[in-house]
Write a protein that binds this DNA or RNA. Sequence first.
RNA 1: GCCCGAGUGGCGGAACUUGGUAGACGCACGGGACUUAAAAUCCCGAGAGGGCAACCUCGUGCCGGUUCAAAUCCGGCCUCGGGCACCA
Length: 876
Amino acid sequence: MDEYIISGPMRNSMTRRYEPKAIEQAWQVVWEKDKAFKAVKASGAGKRYVLEMFPYPSGRIHMGHVRNYSIGDVIARFLMMKGKNVLHPMGWDSFGLPAENAAIQHGTHPAAWTHENIANMRKQLRRMGFSYDWDREVATCMPDYYRWNQWIFLKLHEKGLAYKKRSSVNWCPDCATVLANEQVEDGLCWRCSSTVEMKVLEQWFLKITAYADELLDFTYKLPGWPERVLVMQRNWIGKSEGAEVFFPVDGSEEKIRIFTTRPDTICGVTFMSMAPEHPLLEKISSKDRIDEVRRFAEKVKAEKKLRGAEPAEKEGVFTGAYCVNPLTGAKAPVFAANFVLMEYGTGAVMAVPAHDQRDFEFAKAYGLPVNAVINPHGEILDVKTMTAAFAGEGVMTNSGQFDNMKNTEAMSAITTHIAQKGFGAKTVNYKLRDWGISRQRYWGCPIPIIYCDSCAAVPVPLDELPVILPEDVKLTGKGLSPLAEAGAFINVKCPKCGKPARRETDTMDTFVDSSWYFLRYTSPKAESVPFEKTDADSWMPVDQYIGGIEHAVMHLLYARFFTKALRDLGLHPHDEPFTNLLTQGMVCKEIVKCPEHGYLLPEENAGGKCVYCLKPVETGAVEKMSKSKKNIIDPDLIIEKYGADTTRLFSLFAAPPERDLDWNEEGVEGSYRFLSRVWRLVDDNIELLSGARAYDPARDEPLDGALKEMHRATHKTIKKVTEDVGENFHFNTAISAIMELVNALYQFSQKDDAQGLSPLRGRQVFKEAVNAVVLMLAPFAPHISEELWKMLGSREPVYRTKWPEFNEASLVKAETLIVVQINGKVRSRLTLAVDTPEDAVRRAVLNDEKSAEWIKGKNILKFVYVPNKIVNMVVS
RNA sequence: GCCCGAGUGGCGGAACUUGGUAGACGCACGGGACUUAAAAUCCCGAGAGGGCAACCUCGUGCCGGUUCAAAUCCGGCCUCGGGCACCA
């Protein structure tokens, strides 16, 4: 065998190369066979529910998934090793539009396409070695899941929290279908580029506004959420307190209802602005103005569509009507104005140009009067010279009995006055709208309602659930929703009167599916309830939720709403679903472009040249990986080349979780190199390691010299990694700490004298450190850890092994480095015994040659000593 | 416009929670060892400028402040990224 000695230090014929593929597959089989990650509630240990946002089964996982799930897996595996009862499930958000599009394009059935994708992605996730309890897998497109969507919908309907109303939707006349907001690009249909119209349709809504206050209040009770997500949710809910006031229309019985947050400015009203589509305009506009008002409304409607988000110039038309200020009796002209939104408040705004910038601009454009009612403290506003509205605080003026009050006090005084006089009342307004869940789509959860000519909208009886989505439908992408053409599905008998009736053909928004899946995971097989109360009670809330920031508002708000609504249905006792939220950054990569062939995939770039025309490529900005920019890396290719452990390790090492991560393959190689280095550390020293047990500071005699230092470094690293992983998710620094320890072990392993591996004690210290490295690596790179752990002679797999503990006494140093500053600049470094008293430190500094240079001939003004750390001597 | 977040070597990032050696760890780079050679591996070097050297000066977006001491705290500004955007 000797002729097969492999070159390199300390290699011998027993050496095994690090071959991730074989190891990883083998351990995945073991974990699966052992049901290693099955969540079982055992008494005594605390529960931890770790959850990553489940994926849409698009067909293949992408780097965003890899990152998201690697983060979750580190947390889950760490907690398992810490002895917690961990629930770590995975499933599929498997209803949605891409399945229908694929069906239309490729002639497959959405169900077949989806199931194939799930099978494929499940395989990919298993290849990554994530610690999921696969027995709890759910797929929202399966009847055993979506029947409970329907059940919950009916329960909400019973409570009046699901209702139907007319509302406008995006409508593509060419495709004859409704489009979601995100499918409208610059006012055009994303598929056929026709101009999208607004169409009024009957839609089902969920009354999320009933929970607006609670959803808002709890944003102040979620310390484990990133502040920016909470801020976004608060903005979205958009609560504002103010007053509702009625302005009678002069010469009419009609009253204009307005909402204002500034009742203090009511005496400064000089005109009224109303949304162009406000229904009252038809009634109050004068005969000679009505046509112009209508034309204006049409024009604004058309412009809104075209422009999308950009704000327009302020425009309006006079309606010919006047309203009467209920407080002052003054008359003010009524305008239809393009900046007033029908959707918010009451669709009508009292205009106070002196104290509102929009009203000010409008007044200037149309030559309307400006009337100041608040003076800034110590100043008097001059409406003739004002160039902008004054929106600050001040003292009331021109407001009759309220003059000389502070405007902040006048707000409530005037509101009270208005209420007493019956002109209006204090009110609260929200930007949050009820959630329209009707989708004219096939691949979604059918809404369990039957329409009967005699009984109207009748809920499907609970015992007839689920309403199964029929499989035999034509998918053309044209005409009506596929369900509307599925006769066998539509035609039913009315559950109430038995007469022929029709089923609802709309399906639910897929956000409904994802609003409670975390509850279903607690008892995924429950057959008579959406989830068992006892299971939800004990596993919920999710302790750590991890996902992309793109869900900051929609999904996370809907999930919070459902949690509260289901609580109020008595299904579980929790107020909030997710105690801690981690929003991970995007995975980005440099864009590569060929002057002739446009964006290039990484594999189309051969050493800086386009593979098609050999022209030099241009490299652009680092941007989020996307198919359209072609800056994507297929996780499978990376796993194939380097293994899952390397893929995981790199995605955790290259950046902290919240920050964007730039993908670069050299970095991946670095991670691979590190794992190989750990492998060799064990493999090259396997005989030494098998011949020794680990040093145990609790039982064994104390160490000194290099052995003590090695031992101390081990425990220092355990402390650092435990904190970084367990407390603040600083995975990148945790990994770098392990790297440092490995570097130190390489140094140590090369010392074969009494200060190294020569004495048995040295080998025991070495083994203690190597054991710690392997265990600490386990959450990041679990396969190699298992393999090395076995090589180190353990009979128990890592997943059943406890996380290493650090020993406080082992951290204690005999000597410490004192940095010496003179006038704030580092001039010397002294190594002194720990806890050397201050006067001894002072003497040491004065005796120190380097320091003395700088002190010589000067007066010592001050001596600052931070124990065991630093000295700063101020001299002059 | 408003609200967040971030600016540190050639690059990703560390130190910011708790003011105390700025640049850990990794990548890229340079040097050495091993090799017939290469790869791999192991070791060493490296913020910038100056000096033969010991060392010195400067240095965390900019300006100022607090402090014995500031990347870190405070005030003002600049740039980039994100979110909201006529919300009455």
